[in-house]
Design a protein around this nucleic acid. Structure first.
Lengths: 325, 325
DNA sequence: GATCGTGTGGAAAGCGGTTACGTTGTAACC
DNA sequence: GGTTACAACGTAACCGCTTTCCACACGATC
């Protein structure tokens, strides 16, 4: 591939001059500029970003680590992150930790080795480690981490409250909440708290069912759901911690001949595409994923520039009523 | 961050020696090796991949370009690609072209600038361009491209045949196929051909409905589906080009009070998570995504090494019977 | 005419590694 | 004793680009 040197040779200038027109800095005569441009075109010159990064001591790359890619929530999140990064001339290095602790560690080190501009660490249930030695901004999304640069989350507590209120308003008396994984503390846990608060205040019967890590890892909840429904036949309202779970609840209900929303009403969480692809479509708590992605990228770039950024940002959620309630 | 030079200074050796132990090449005494290791640990040394890449004139990064990320098929594909890459110490740079021609171009150039090891270009309906000037292997998945290094696809024709046969066996007489986008020729078009062949051979009535690019871009087909069903009330079997479309057909049927599979039977394509999250679950043509991802990555690395690789690889599909037929 | 600012471009030192080649010490061999 | 081979490590060029410092020409200024 053509290099700066080639372009310099072609134009009879030196690399420093060519570099200058490439970066638009310093004084360059219009004629020289044109000469360089046409030489670049002629040689099909593509600046070597690797060399550039080495020289500038920084890259335009953001490391994104998620626990799952195939999970619609993360797919949606990644999609938005990529888009926001693109708008700002950044690229995404994508890593899928698969909920494995070692793998997450490895990825963090890879990010570091690759001198990413910063890291966006999403959710995930692995233990809160000492992420020291990381010299780059670390933004977390929906995840607790003591020594991160900044955390972005949605108002999970409010989300739990909205779900409970809605189910109660719709006449439910016996509620169940399928919550997240119990092992690790996560911001999403607040959903259960908000839900509980409203139930208690309203004197409504409720139960909280935590899913296991194994289930989360395989994204498979059918069995557990069926068991819970059999053991709690009086249930008439369910709040699921994700639309993904809600969709599976819907399937189990169908199999058990429980009509939704007539016999049981369901509220999901996230509001990702799956919520509107099921039949009936899922009433859910909308998580502002697009905004969360935008803010995360902005915080990262801001932190990279050496600025002080808010250590915690919380965004509001909202109820989207569809057909399961 | 600590550099090789720091480690060298710490140990009293030169960078070349340190580099040698880092890369395990040449003769190094065991004592020196240990001295270097402990110095690295002490200084928390992380090799700078950027510098390494520049020096080696190649990276361990694979550029992946997809038209959608939120689409379950691509999410699944990306997930598998990432995993296969990880096994081989490669990283994924992810780009979402959003079906935009310019953006795809831009991404190809970014890949080139970043000196990726190779590019995996997935599906996408943008025109077949002259991707010259690209000095890296270009692997396509489910996409026609004249000057790519290698193409990987599943046996779409066979898939279409399987779907038609299955529907006919189940007693359907009036079939409809919701196919892909018509504008650009894609391997997936063969699904329609296989489907047509079986219908014609069996003397079964059928129609082929191509979706528009606009619909594909927004992943929204409800209206079109409803229109088609209204205009073709005799329809009793549908073959959808993706599970994503099949899920929407399911919804439209529900709204129109058409019972599935009693009145209309549906077969999807891809076999991604959405197919088993709907109610009823979707009978579909299984696409061996995992294997396609594996082969793509292998081909890419092989081509990067300068080897000649098969220019076209086709993998078999299979029918997965669930509840919509 | 000496001084100065301004526009233009060259020279060279990094950035942090890799690697071909050179040097030295030591043991084995005829 | 001299040659040879090999182990162990150093020297220095190079990867492609950025950036600081310098050099020079030219017109304006005092």
């Amino acid at each position: 591939m053509a290099t700066l040197k080639d372009v310099a040779k072609e134009t009879g200038l030196t690399v420093s001059t060519v570099s200058r027109v490439l970066n638009n800095r310093g004084y360059i005569s219009e004629e020289t500029r044109q000469r360089v441009y046409s030489a670049m075109k002629k040689l099909n010159y593509q600046p070597n970003e690797v060399a550039r990064s080495l020289s500038k001591q920084t890259t335009n790359t953001i490391g994104v680590i998620v626990p799952h890619i195939r999970h619609p929530y993360f797919a949606e999140l990644i999609s938005n992150l990529e888009n926001e990064a693109y708008q700002r001339q950044y690229k995404i290095l994508l890593f899928n930790s698969q909920e494995k602790n070692e793998r997450e560690w490895e990825y963090l080190e890879m990010c570091s080795s690759n001198r990413v501009a910063g890291i966006i660490l999403c959710s995930g249930t692995v233990g809160v480690e000492e992420f020291q030695g990381l010299n780059v901004p670390l933004i977390t999304i929906e995840r607790n981490l003591e020594n991160g640069t900044a955390a972005v989350e949605c108002d999970n507590y409010q989300g739990g409250m909205l779900a409970a209120k809605h189910l109660i308003e719709k006449g439910c008396q016996h509620l169940i909440h399928f919550s997240g994984v119990r092992e690790t503390a996560m911001p999403a846990d607040a959903r259960a708290l908000g839900f509980r608060k409203v139930c208690e205040d309203g004197g409504i019967d409720f139960k909280d069912m935590a899913t296991s890590a194994a289930q989360y890892n395989h994204l498979e909840y059918h069995e557990a759901i069926e068991l819970v429904l059999r053991e709690n036949p009086e249930t008439d309202g369910i709040f699921a911690s994700s639309d993904f779970i809600a969709a599976q609840i819907l399937q189990v209900c169908y199999r058990m001949k429980i009509r939704v929303p007539e016999q049981i009403k369901i509220v999901g969480f996230d509001d990702v595409n799956i919520a509107s692809l099921t039949t009936p479509q899922i009433t859910t708590i909308h998580q502002p994923i697009k905004e969360m992605a935008k803010i995360s990228v902005e915080l990262l770039i801001d932190a990279q520039a050496g600025n002080i950024v808010p250590s915690r940002t919380m965004l509001p959620v909202s109820l989207v009523v569809r057909e399961t309630t």
